[in-house]
Structure formats: C-alpha cells, structure tokens
Amino acid sequence: MPGKVIPWLKVVVHLLCLLPLLKLLMMFHSGALAAESDPVQFLTHFTGLWALWLLVWDLAITPVRRLSPKLSWLIRFRRMVGLYSFFYATLHMLVYVFLFSGYDTATALEGIRAHHWGVPWQQLKLIVPSMIDDVKQRAFIQVGLITWVLLLALAITSPQRVLRAMGGKNWQRLHRVVYVAGFLALMHFWWSLKKGNNAPAVVSIVFFALMIARLVWTLWQKRKKRARMVTA
C-alpha cells in the first residue's frame, strides 16, 4: 500500500466509524428516535453493540494482517478503530447515566436553558446513591463498568508520546488487556439479556474465532523458532 493512499484511507475509516453516530443524529432530527418504542433501550443497545463490534474488528486487524505481508499497512488503523470503540463505549455509559438511571434529563435541560448551571449537577447528585446501589446489585453492570475502565486505560495510553514514555514492553503488556476487555464486554452483553435471547451469539463467535487464530499463530511461531534452533 503506497504511503500516499494511507491518509485518504484514514479519512474513509474515520467516516465509516462515525456512520453509526451520524445515523443516531439523523434519527434524532427526523423524530425516528422518539418514534422508537423505547428510545432509551434502543440507544443503549445501539451504542453498546457498536462499541463491541468495533472492538472485535480492531482485534481482527492483526490476524488478518498476518495472512500476507502485503497487508502490513493495516496496523496503522488499529489505534483509530480502538479509540472509536472506546468512544461508543463512553456514549453507552453516558446513556446509562443520563437516560437510563433515572436522571431527570428534562429538568436538567430546563436548567441549562435558564442558565442555571447548577441544576444538571444537582440532578446528578440526586441520582448517584441509587446508581451506586444499582451497580452494587447488578453483576452485569459491574462487568460493563470494569470493561469501560480498561478501555479508558488503553485510550489514555494510546498516544505515541505515552508509548515512548512507558517503554514498548510495558506498553504492550498493558495493551494486552484489550483481550480481557473484549471478553468482559461479551459477558456484560450476555448477562444483560433474558435467558433464551442469543443476540450476542454472532459477535461472540467472531471474537472467539479471532482468539483461536491468535493462539494458533503463537503456537506455530514457537514451533518454527524451536525448529530453527534445532537446525542451527
């Protein structure tokens, strides 16, 4: 892939990753979001699902790259896609806090319109105790929260400067938690649903296929290395 094409491709990938957000904005504008039977449920599911799929596609980059040396340029999109996954995961959490948890969004918005800037904050303080209760009682919310914190750690340490400051080894060790995050995100999805709902099946299968691909690759590399050592 010639270097000149990469910046253009980056623009394309940015746009692709922003498409789900664009869809939401259009739905909001046209009233289609309000017409959804349960807009909050829709937003929760939509943002969570995109966070998860982007994470899985991100994890697919390395195995796909290994298929051919010609695909090595794919690595240059890994950080970007990962950050978009974090972006949708953050939206997912904000939906929980401001639309799902009982936060009085209408009152908060009225406060903002009247330039009473304390109102949104007061409303948040009102809801915090019951939110903490909710998190304490619900394992699937705890798992979701841990996933988000892991993704946050990865996002914060994603700039080149931080990588250099941390040193490659440490950075790589930290960034391996992306597999844990992927696994926890799936757990969060399965646990949030009623028994019998297999909506996360497809994304789960893709995730585990990618994990197996990595495992096979690692074992194969080890064998090659050993074979080399024997012949030497």
């Binding site: 909050v40 209760d133 009682q137």
Partner: peptide, 21 residues
Amino acid sequence: VAPWRSQERERVLGSGFLPKI
C-alpha cells in the same frame, strides 16, 4: 424486591424522546 434487576423505577413509554422515569 429485585431478584433480577432493580424494580424501583420504570420508564413510561410515551411519545417523546426523553425518558419519563
């Protein structure tokens, strides 16, 4: 009583976008 998830509040589905909780 909340054996599965919290039942303290509910979203009343109506015509608006903002949830009525």
